[in-house]
Design a binder for these strands. Structure first.
Length: 742
DNA sequence: GAGCACTGC
């Protein structure tokens, strides 16, 4: 403890000496001491993330275990740990450390550990009692990330159980939940009506204005780009000095908006400066996630004297990145959101209005360094009628398959009555159970199988893990490991903006596809991985082939991580071993079939395919596929994912043979979700088992079952979901185009 | 003949 500084001592010159949290130090420590659950609330800038762990450490809470603090994002975990180790005067990685995927900066001495929520969830799988910890602090709970929500339920359950069983060890484990001021009542009620400790914030006031440029009738159209540009220019001409941050939804419209800003600014008599992207007095900078990091860098530098900076960004600027000097925010009111449509089992990427709480978060970005202004392009009526109060939590809008497997592995027998802060709909939990049953991760009684335990070890979606384990049991994991890694990282193929460059990149990509046999997108990924890895100068190889080097690097890391997990698991005596003789190409596709048989489609009318999962969605092959325009030669295909845009597209595809899946397809219809609620609770009675076994014994031959499935989905046309209606509309439109409908 | 918001293990 000799290096311990005075609690309020700061090593840098930040003006933090008057943080409101300092005056509450003793009361805060006492509140943690007195309660096993505590909610701590305070806006950004209250110092709760950096100070509370230090207070607890200094008052002896680490004598019997570590303090673990979770963050939803990697950068946050790393930068906060750096900051706290510096404030305490320690080397990072000793007493204060962090752990994120691929980067464990902790040691034997670490007592204050910052980590991502996903890392803690992994740790719980290995040590369900969290023996090493005395306190867990969940930070940014209001963001409602999937992993944080699950941790919240798990820790609540654990602490309540140990309270009842008087188990002395876990009795001392404490849970502190930190959140922005919204929803603290709900959190306290969730955690046995625990006290709420409020810390005043120290942000500056932000005045908010509705500009009435779009209203409720504009919800469906994306006309807001020009309105956003208009407001940004108004701010530039009418408001005193200070930088502008504009929120839009995606790369293409951000670039469009930037173009319009240059043009408009010119037409209203600003001098266009050809040397950089600026008009007189206004420096226009796009910002989105897939942008190269060196281009992002200049966004964080202050503009030259007398120049105003205008950053046009996606939601990345709402939480992940902080730009200093922002005084004005222009809010489009929209966000691009990935939703899972459980009814048809597809992911959709949609532009939707943001929630009121998200709008407040965006406005807050104007008040980080001084008071600011937020201009909302929409009307108050839009705010009231189109924007929900809160964003729907991730647990209610994403596929639950992997999460349900994790819960089952942790001995949560009843995954429906698990304490969710907001419960997903029961039928969606049942859909996840069906998928887990289909890939042999759980049995008919809802218990995790040996295979399921192995699957939970991998940071992959269960279907992909199933394929990987199949390959490993056949001794051909070297084929599947790179494929699994490539499917886990962002798109690796670069699509340049300029048309002439586009041709060049397409030609290179076609060449890579031909090398891989010309008709299997998974084999193309394998080929890219192997060629790049074998190259003496991989980054130059990527540049030459129009491949994202950054994405390739992370694919290499993922492949190594998966390989390490596999090596460990293969020592397990229960690890399955099978035999198969066949070509490399067939081996790859056979392994994929074992995990992806729910993603199989059969050739239908025109160039369309019909999925065999029971939804019978009509899908098209995406033009980026090596199989595009080869539809005529295809009968059965297997795909990795679906994208709903102007049509329903399947991407990353390979041709398969019906014989490879005919024994697997009936499994898709063996159980229906509604039959699984006792499985969810692991309360399947012997009577139910007997009934089901009889049904199975008398079931039809696989060919008939597949035909039946096909008929079933062709019959299905009374779907009332918005997406299904849209799918039907797109299908009709397509048929009209083909001249099939008068 | 299309296009990918953002996180995370």
């Amino acid at each position: 403890m000799s290096k311990r500084g005075h609690p309020n001592r700061k090593l840098d010159s930040h003006n933090d000496d008057d943080l409101p949290i300092f005056r509450q130090r003793e009361k805060l420590i006492q509140a943690v001491r007195d309660n096993s659950f505590l909610v701590v609330t305070g806006e950004t800038g209250s110092g709760k993330t950096t100070q509370l762990p230090q207070y607890l450490y200094q008052s002896g809470f680490c004598r019997h275990g570590k303090i673990g603090i979770t963050q939803p994002r990697r950068v946050a975990a790393i930068t906060v740990a750096q900051r706290v180790s510096q404030e305490l005067g320690y080397d990072l990685g000793r007493q204060v450390g962090y752990q994120v995927r691929f980067d464990d900066c902790t040691s034997q001495d670490t007592v204050i550990k910052y980590m991502t929520d996903g890392c803690l969830l992994r740790e719980i799988l290995a040590d369900p009692d969290l023996k090493q910890y005395s306190i867990i602090i969940l930070d940014e709970v209001h963001e409602r990330s999937l992993n944080t929500d699950i941790l919240l339920g798990l820790l609540k359950r654990k602490l309540l159980q140990s309270r009842e069983s008087l188990s002395s060890r876990s009795k001392s484990l404490k849970l502190v939940v930190m959140s922005a001021t919204l929803e603290t009542g709900k959190l306290s009620a969730f955690l046995a009506d625990c006290p709420v400790f409020s810390i005043p914030g120290r942000t500056f006031s932000v005045t908010e204005r509705f500009c009435n440029l779009i209203g409720p009738k504009d919800v469906e159209s994306s006309v807001y780009v020009k309105e956003v540009v208009k407001v940004a220019l108004d701010v530039h001409t009418c408001e005193p000095a200070g930088d502008i941050l504009v929120f839009l939804t995606g790369q293409s419209e951000i670039e469009k908006a930037c173009d319009m800003l240059y043009d408009k600014a010119e037409s209203i008599d600003y001098r266009y400066d050809v040397h950089d992207h600026s008009v007189e007095g206004l420096l226009i900078l796009p910002l989105y996630g897939s942008m190269p990091t060196d281009q992002q860098r200049m966004i964080f530098q202050p503009p030259p004297a007398g120049v105003r900076k205008c950053v046009v960004a996606t939601n990345i600027a709402a939480t992940s990145l902080t730009i200093r000097g922002i005084k004005y925010v222009v809010d489009s009111g929209f966000v691009k959101q990935l939703n899972h449509n459980f009814r048809v089992g597809l992911d959709t990427l949609e532009v939707v209005p943001i929630s009121k709480s998200e709008a407040q978060q965006r406005a807050g970005r104007a008040g980080r360094t001084s008071s600011g202004k937020c201009f909302r392009i929409y009307s108050r009526e839009f705010w009231e009628k189109c924007m929900p109060d809160y964003t729907i939590p991730e647990v209610q809008r994403t596929s639950l398959t992997a999460v349900i497997l994790t819960l089952k592995c942790l001995g949560v027998h009843d995954v429906i009555r698990f304490p969710y802060l907001d419960s997903p709909e029961e039928k969606y939990i049942l859909v996840a159970l069906k998928q887990l049953y289909q890939c042999d991760a759980i049995d008919r009684r809802g218990h995790v199988t040996t295979l399921g335990r192995l699957m939970a070890e991998f940071p992959l979606p269960p279907g992909l893990t199933r394929a990987l384990l199949k390959a490993a049991s056949l001794g051909c994991e070297d084929i599947l490991l790179p494929v699994a890694a490539m499917l886990s990282v962002e798109n690796i193929f670069i699509r340049p903006g300029r048309p002439e460059k586009q041709q060049e990149s397409e030609q290179k990509h076609r060449q890579l596809a031909t090398q891989a046999g010309g008709c299997n997108d998974f084999a193309v990924l394998l080929n890219v991985f192997e060629k790049c890895k074998a190259s003496d100068t991989p980054s130059a190889w990527c540049r030459d082939h129009w491949i994202h080097w950054r994405a390739m690097k992370s694919a290499f890391s993922v492949e190594k991580q998966l390989r390490d997990i596999l090596i460990r698991l293969k020592q397990h005596p229960d690890f399955p071993v099978e035999k198969f003789d066949g070509s490399r190409s067939e081996l790859l596709r056979r392994c994929l079939c074992s995990g992806y048989f729910a993603n199989v489609a059969r050739r239908s009318v025109g160039r369309t395919f019909c999925t065999m999962d029971g939804h019978g969605s009509v899908v098209h092959i995406h033009p980026s596929s090596a199989l595009f325009e080869q539809e005529a030669q295809l009968d059965w295909i297997l795909f990795h994912d679906v994208l709903v845009t102007s049509r329903v597209y399947v991407r990353t595809i390979c041709p398969i043979r019906y014989e490879w899946v005919k024994d697997l397809l009936p499994k898709l219809h063996e159980v229906e979700p509604h039959e699984l609620s006792s499985v969810a609770r692991e309360e399947v009675t012997d009577e139910e088992m007997a009934k089901w076994e009889t049904k199975e014994a008398t079931k039809r031959r696989p060919e008939e079952a597949a035909e039946e499935a096909l008929k079933k989905l062709q019959r299905r046309n009374s779907n009332d979901s918005v997406l299904a209606a849209r799918l039907r509309y797109l299908q009709r439109k397509q048929e009209r185009k083909l001249g099939k409908v008068p």
